[in-house]
Amino acid sequence: MLDFDVISPKTSHELFEVISNSQDKNYRFGAGYTDLINDLNNNLQQNLTVINLAKLNDNNFKAININENGVQIGALVTATQLLENNIIQNNYPVLWEATNSVASGQIRASATIGGNVCQASPSGDMSCALVALKAVCEIIDSKGNIREENISDFFRGVKKTSLKKNEILRSIFVPINISKNIKSGYIKVGTRNSMEIAIASIAYHFQKDEQNNVIDAGYAIGAVAPTIVFTKDACDFILGKNINSLNETDVKQFANLIKKYAKPISDIRASAWYREEVLINLSETILK
């Protein structure tokens, strides 16, 4: 039976106070609760305090703000809110598709983008898209100090992030596209279509000039290493190339550069060998 205390701050001032006062306590943040409750059901904890973010009324955490540099997505924005946002759908198909592939409608209605990122699951869907988009995490501590960190650096291992105990993820910044000519999407492979946790996933976001030469490349792979990985060498390789007329050698080379980043494991969902095969085939497919 779950048994924990809950504190529900309503303003960021109250939130910082609660975090400050809880430094010697065992606490967890609760936002959408779609991961936390499963976690707590599976690992009952004594003397736990949940800092309930559901009542927090602060737009830095809750809103999607658009400015000339990009889109600032509050950590408490739900998957459903993202899906209903036209700017996300039109400019960042990779993020929209990844979000649409999260679990089910009921879960998307509660689950937050910040929760997806802070869970730091190697198979996190929204997180994978954010890595491809070179998103930046905005982290705030209980004194109100803000630091920014590239999302690839924010992930430190399976379920590990760079967050310190007195810090919280406030929002995620996605830089504006430098071109309207994009090739962007998310592919997740599992054993069925619904409620799936990826065996392997790829998130790609290529920006092209008018001749279809790549001027900016983002490519991330999920569920094939302890963290979601930005495949920098593959991205560098494809820069300047015409993505619509790549030859066979280029496609193979691109896939090989991606393979280098994969360190898959065998588990209940798939073998390491299978995960790698899927990853290579997906990577080649999107360029053909």
Partner: peptide, 21 residues
């Protein structure tokens, strides 16, 4: 949160009541 048997509606939105405080 897998089966949906506990689904209810809060302010017009269907959610899983097994994963909601």
């Amino acid at each position: 949160g897998e089966c949906g048997a506990c689904t209810i509606i809060i302010d017009g939105t269907a959610i899983n009541s097994c994963m909601y405080l």
